[in-house]
Design a protein around this nucleic acid. Structure first.
Lengths: 229, 229
DNA sequence: GCAAAAGTGTTATGTCTACACCCATGT
DNA sequence: ACATGGGTGTAGACATAACACTTTTGC
């Protein structure tokens, strides 16, 4: 017998992606108007079905690239959603993924083509199926990840100011932080380098730009440190 | 059109369970000798296929009950494993779950019937497919969960001594802890109650028994505390 | 010269860690 | 009486949190 599993049920497996971006003020997610039934025209996460010759990570990357034009992006598997009637059209199980992208880099044309839109997480419309649950799950995960790993940098341009970084963390946790304590903490982590350039868009004085240093981070991570803000 | 998804691939979805127990000394996992091809006779996690009328959580509970006789157990979804060739017999994706059970309560007969065995996590044999990866993933998750939530109690009898609790945490983290600091920490959390009974099995003097108090914990959890040991 | 954001240190508080001795009991 | 594991408190180190004023420069 080659295959013992022939009597078992097969199901459709989808991936849905919560794509986070940051616009210097708010934490945002990318949503599209669904182009087909059921629930055509309603707001939805971007998603697609797993093909039998790819892994779930492959599928998630394929979906992400299709809707943003971006590859090589920070992504993480979140959780499977499997309520029996979650999709009225057919029995589908969905693996939720979340991605962190630099909001300036995605392909504007694709966004228009798919009637996609960025929404602040606090002002997003309600979504089809169980997608709202997925978004909440993703925000929770993002918050815990941000306390242990420097994932925030994925959401910023390569060069950023301390103010931007602070605002990002404030957006992720929906809180306010003291700027002196914040800067001291970041400096003590020793994972960013201060550049000689200043960003003068935000103020007359201009503020110094910083850059995340992956090699410094890797060294720190190997020692088993933790990032608590 | 009732179903737009008819052209999409369907796959087999399995659940595999890492079942943790604690025998007062070591953290253990329950493994079985696989009863069918491929890899018949090799050590494996307990698992089964998702049926189309149940959720993944249902399937995991069904598997757990089948092999241990236990229901109403702490379980948590871990992650999906989806390498294309992970199971040579057919394209299957597996959702890993982990469960924490009181090792004294499982059904001994079932264990024998399925040629199952408890192994210390440090001495487990190597497993079929990607099950070793699943186990490592589960241990990592267990360690992080144990720092934020009092899941350890799931692995102990209802009444336990501080010594048992400490040994459990030492086993989870593979470390040693100072007993005074440990007890002070647990007391400061205010989620266990000290009983008037003593357990005299472990020493001549006997040691006081404690009990986890879910209502105290819920109150604490609502305030958003964290458990760091 | 003034408005607007950037930059910078210190102190008090709380938390974590290390550490050693007496107690109760069964044999 | 002694061996075995149970139980208890404190002081120093460390990390966190609170806090206000000066600097730069474009207008």
């Amino acid at each position: 017998m080659i295959n013992n599993y022939s009597s078992e049920d097969k199901v459709l497996l989808a991936v849905d992606c919560i794509i986070f971006g940051f616009d210097e003020e708010d934490l945002k997610i990318l949503l599209i108007r669904r182009g087909f039934e059921p629930e055509k025209g309603k707001w939805s996460l971007v998603g697609g079905f797993l093909k039998s010759e790819e892994t779930l990570d492959d599928a998630a990357r394929r979906v992400l690239e299709r809707y943003t034009g971006l590859s090589d992006v920070y992504m993480e598997q979140l959780a499977a959603f499997s309520e029996v009637d979650r999709d009225p059209a057919d029995r589908t199980i969905s693996m939720a993924y979340y991605a962190l992208i630099n909001i300036k880099e995605h392909n504007e044309k694709l966004i228009k083509q798919f009637s996609a839109n960025w929404f602040s997480v606090s002002q997003a419309p309600s979504l089809i199926f169980d997608h709202d649950k997925m978004v909440h799950f993703a925000i929770r995960r993002l918050r815990t990840r941000a306390t242990t790993r420097p994932i925030g940098f994925e959401l910023l341009p390569e060069k950023f100011t301390m103010r931007q970084l602070q605002k990002l963390y404030e957006a992720i946790w929906d809180t306010t932080l003291d700027k002196r304590n914040f800067i001291n903490k970041i400096r003590s982590l020793d994972i960013v380098v201060k550049l000689d350039e200043k960003d003068k868009k935000s103020s007359r004085k201009g503020s110094f730009l910083y850059q995340f240093d992956p090699s410094k981070y890797d060294k720190k991570a190997a020692e088993g440190f933790m990032l608590k803000l």
